[in-house]
Nucleic acid binder design. Structure first.
Lengths: 168, 168
DNA sequence: TTAAAGTTTCAATAATTATTGAAACTTTAT
DNA sequence: ATAAAGTTTCAATAATTATTGAAACTTTAA
């Protein structure tokens, strides 16, 4: 396969994967484009490469910065802004884990905590089932939280080394 | 908090979490409803509890069965079909992991494999960056795949025991 | 059979989410 | 000052995704 075709295929696949995981397709595609680009790109270049509008490009780039996945770069003597992505896949994973933990897991833990204070009749099967399910989910979520916490601090080799060794 | 309010809050939170992770909100809500219900429910009861149409309920229940998260139950002497959810949170996690691995991770691994056969000029930075990114992502995806594979075979206590012990 | 009970399908519609494009705004150089 | 280059905003629109509801279908029992 030629590089040009491969790039398109990569961008398409990354966009599809993103959308299956609740990430806007365009955002995933812009990230993919920057991931495989050795140079920082301008808004114009991104618009052109993905056939998207200026407004869309601007908002998407802002979101990606908000996720900590890309950065602005200023080139000396240039007026335009350039964007580039961290190419370290482990950093990317940690960044995504960190954001989703903050945006999604933590709010859920908060709700589960509130729900565990529910009051009712201990003899009522509906009450017992509710409490059991909430409590089990809470335990699982706390384990996931702790594991992510560790991942955020870990080096890639150490992390996978430990995890895969345990599972051999 | 009262049980009735807590149930609603749980269903709402589960629906929201689902939609943030690429799972249809209604599907997550129906699953939540069955998770906290000690008895199997009929389509009618589910429609009523969540204010959804018969068509929606039927399709959603079919999808949930397809994900292996709920089952049909036939009650002796009854014409209606009843639905109930496995309440074991570890089984649920494994089932979701199994399905997403099959539906999403495996197709991505296939594409990454194809993309690693890309041909081009080894001196070209664009080519080198592309190959490096694809190769790094491929390695990560393979590690995730192996870890999920282990999880699918594991017992909950063993799994979290091992993972959390490593990270202490 | 046939009619009642229950289930499934799917075209039409609604709701949600993403995108455009042009105007407003900001920055820089002259 | 002002004009050119670049960026941001957001109301309007498009595209996508979810939902309805009624008709078609299936199953069961009299």
């Amino acid at each position: 396969m030629e590089l040009a075709a491969a790039k398109l295929k990569f961008i398409e696949a990354w966009g599809k994967l993103g959308s299956e995981w609740g990430i806007n397709r365009t955002m995933a595609q812009v990230h993919a484009l920057l991931l495989i680009s050795p140079e920082a790109l301008t808004t114009e270049e991104i618009m052109e490469a993905l056939s998207i509008s200026r407004g869309n490009a601007n908002m998407t780039l802002r979101d990606l910065i908000g996720w900590g996945l890309i950065e602005k770069q200023h080139k000396a003597g240039e007026r335009k802004e350039y964007f580039f992505a961290d190419k370290d896949v482990w950093n990317i994973s940690r960044q995504v884990a960190k954001e989703r933990k903050k945006r999604e897991l933590e709010p859920v833990l908060k709700v589960l905590n509130e729900l565990s204070t529910v009051t009712g009749d201990e003899k009522d099967p509906a009450f017992k089932t509710f409490k059991k399910s909430v409590s089990d989910i809470n335990k699982l979520a706390l384990n996931v939280d702790k594991t992510l916490e560790t991942m955020l601090k870990a080096e890639e080799n150490w992390f996978w080394g430990s995890v895969l060794k345990v599972f051999k």
